[in-house]
Simulated scan of single mutants.
Amino acid sequence: MVTTLATALPDRSPYVVADAAYAGKELRALPAQVTWTTRLRVDAALYDLAPPRTGRRGRPRSTGQRLPSLTALAAQVSFTPLPVRRYGKTTTVDIATVRCLWYGTFGPQPVTVILLRETTTHTRGGYDTALVTTDTLTRPTQIIHRYAARWSIEVMIEDAKQLIGVGQARNRLAHAVERTVPFGLTCQTLTMLWYATVGHTPTDVADHRDRAPWYTTKANPSTADMIGKLRRVLIATKYQVTHPDQPTPEDIHTIRLAWELNAA
């Protein structure tokens, strides 16, 4: 998929962020303009950069000396406290970088290993998170920010499975799976776009707090709030055939009260 995207956009430089599951030998064949950032495995075999050629006969070395384990490496390098923007807030963490080779995955392409240590927690092994990236020109703080940003994709996938219904599909044929999952994700995207453009009203969070007052810290609408709002708007529109425009919050509230009175 990444190769197809890079081929279609030859003048762009895509950067990919993925978890440790997406780190195999196939990454050696990536297009030159693509950079890859992933979580570094604890047992990763790291090497120094290949030494310069000496002019002697024989095949030149592909790697330098084998580097120690990440725990030993963390004890040797110097950490620098730097501010990092992650998950909607800025915190200061200790960062150390090592330029090396992860030959088993990226071959002779140089990479940067970023060791991250949370200053407010007790670290085992001398570090908390180890990242590796082929983007050797971007600052480590930006790489960490980039990696943290992928978490929104994980949340989106969970919402698609639990709220949209993608996880409840009972498909067995390959074509059915290939249609159902993309259709569910498309519906989720359309819901988000609708809510962001015309569906949002400032009172949505206050209305949710009225229905669930135990959410004392709720400050922003959730995906479930967006879906619920869309359902209420669709139902209210259905019962207002003389007013084809999108119903106002007052219209939705009136219809909801009517349902509650009928249910009582």
Rank of each mutant, 00 (worst) to 15 (best):
A149H: 10
P52C: 07
T91R: 11
T191N: 04
Q76P: 06
I227A: 01
V34Q: 02
V181C: 06
G64C: 06
N262D: 12
T4L: 12
G228S: 04
T97P: 03
L193C: 06
V155D: 05
V2E: 11
Q65C: 10
W194T: 03
A149T: 06
I252A: 09
A45G: 09
A21P: 00
K238D: 08
T119L: 15
L234V: 12
Q109N: 12
Y147F: 11
R170C: 08
A174L: 13
R139T: 12
P182W: 03
T38A: 09
T54W: 05
S13K: 14
T97S: 03
I114K: 10
A21K: 04
P14V: 02
R85K: 14
W194Y: 04
E260F: 01
Y47C: 11
R12P: 01
Q240I: 13
T141W: 00
I157V: 12
L101E: 04
S69Q: 10
E158F: 12
A18P: 00
T254V: 04
A23C: 11
L27F: 02
R179I: 07
E178S: 10
R232F: 09
A21H: 05
M1L: 14
I164E: 02
K218R: 15
V2D: 06
A74N: 00
D251H: 03
V98M: 06
R150M: 07
R85G: 08
P202H: 05
P140M: 01
T242N: 08
